[in-house]
Design a protein around this nucleic acid. Structure first.
Lengths: 192, 192
DNA sequence: TTGAAAGTGGAGGTTGACCTCCGCTAGAGT
DNA sequence: ACTCTAGCGGAGGTCAACCTCCACTTTCAA
């Protein structure tokens, strides 16, 4: 694979241990954490996560010295996946491409919701994530803007936060979330 | 005052104890809780809240048997305030009235952010809050819609959730939040 | 004014999450 | 195949939040 190496990917790769058993445990912990955080919120007992991963609590602490470290890794993992999606939609028509990428946020919002409150924008990992999002989605944004489909008084960061806020909110059902997101995005289109 | 009695007001009034010392402690606890939740998040130690209210921990538990009860009361208190605001803007031009009411959400979002994740839509209090919001803001919405200022494929619940999501999100500064909210609301206006 | 009833505070027992320690296991390199 | 080391598990000590209990204080209405 010749995927361009994004900041998140580097960080994720650097964290993953070398030995095969250790790497397996690391992966198991990461996906167990994603599930447990989504189900029980960001304050879920770390022991639950270790148990679900089929791993001792010590192994969890060895890989992720603090709850914060684990958070950041789960988050980085999801961001990386989201960035990969951006490549997949690059062939679409400008507004379509951006629009469909933004709508992918929904799938990742469960974890994000649980994670967000404990996350401050200052950490290195978070910076890397933000940077990655810019690289992945920024071109789509620029292209749509050049095509005249985006009003000029909004920037990419505005847009990201808007969508993040909406997708992280509870709705009655997915249809409502999509409808609301669509409405907000209509506001993003070029006026006139 | 001949303010129309909203569901929240009833519940808030019913909870407040009769005796003067008890009522004073109740109020102190409520505003201490609002502050502490805003500062330290929804998991803040209840003892911090009791201390800030200048009250024993037992008094807190007597008034609010569980953390959840306290949450709900703080939340109901804020909703009540927000509902009162809706009367104040009723004189404005239809879209202006709705728009300015929605923008008041921002002021109450700090607490809401801390509270939301622990809040499920099933509780009686939450239902009462929702009901109150409808009564307070629904007319503004209907009026704006009748004036042709709101697209017809969105309802009031959609709009509430959209704004709640955006206002509960972290932004670089207030200017960014306002800008993004404005963009989303442009989407809410009648298209064409 | 006074006494009954409602309310108060905070010490301390209980609970459960956190995280370390160390004897054991399994992978990597020769 | 063998060794040596990185990695493993989970028992149990530590710590902080929760919440109850009860002797004392305040309010209120008669």
């Amino acid at each position: 694979m010749t995927v361009p190496q994004l900041p998140v990917d580097e960080i994720v790769a650097a964290q993953r241990p070398y030995r095969r058993d250790a790497a397996r445990n690391y992966d198991a912990l990461l996906s167990a954490a994603r599930e447990v955080f989504a189900e029980s919120g960001a304050e879920a007992p770390l022991e639950d996560i270790a148990r679900r991963a089929g791993v001792g609590i010590a192994t969890l602490y060895r890989n992720f010295p603090t709850r914060r470290h684990l958070f950041e890794s789960v988050y980085a993992d999801e961001v990386a996946a989201l960035c990969r999606v951006a490549e997949g939609v690059a062939a679409l028509e400008p507004w379509e491409a951006l629009d469909s990428w933004l709508r992918r946020f929904v799938g990742y919002s469960v974890t994000k919701r649980a994670i967000r409150e404990a996350m401050d924008d200052e950490s290195d990992i978070f910076q890397a994530c933000r940077e990655s999002m810019y690289r992945a989605g920024g071109p789509l944004f620029d292209r749509a803007r050049q095509a005249g489909r985006i009003r000029t008084d909004i920037d990419f960061d505005d847009l990201l936060r808007m969508v993040a806020g909406i997708t992280a909110t509870n709705f009655l059902d997915d249809a409502q979330r999509d409808r609301v997101l669509g409405v907000a995005l209509d506001g993003v289109r070029a006026v006139r």
